[in-house]
Amino acid sequence: MSASESVPSLFVGFSRFVAADEPARASSELVWSDDRSQTEDVTRSKVLIVDDQRLIADTLAEILGNSGFDAVAAYDGFDALEKASRFQPHWVVTDVLMPRMNGVELAIAMRKNFPNSAILLFSGQAGISEILQDGHRQGYQFELLAKPIHPLKLIERLREN
């Protein structure tokens, strides 16, 4: 099954799938924000952090929340797509090597369904070039950051545009 075929179909079915498989997931969503009232502030940048390693997703979401972003953590691609549909993030920062749906598949689904969200990939692994090239062949290019990245550098990057 090639990524080009799998991603859209996966996305179409994702909400049903997630609802059936992990009904508790939506309620475990973490929204880090110093001041709830600022959540509605249109100037506040919304960031969705996706990593199957929860510690990474959670800590980054917390750090970004502390730094004036509206940040939500998601722990896999389906989770991310579901949260994105409600959260409408300006940014999606996603790990690449994740089970079930990899970061590039997620990014392509995001491009198709939420064209207004900018996407940043971040990965700690050298072995992802094939996954990136899969996306490449379908005409998608994504910016890739190397893990580990210092939070301040990530923040700097997110503030660039």
Partner: peptide
């Protein structure tokens, strides 16, 4: 070597990422 590096990279870089975030938060 490449395969080994890739495998090790995954096992090292992810904990490093967590650790940096945790320490950054602890500092805050």
């Amino acid at each position: 070597t490449g395969r080994m590096a890739a495998a090790i990279a995954h096992e090292i870089n992810n904990p490093l990422e967590s650790l940096i975030n945790v320490i950054f938060l602890a500092r805050q």
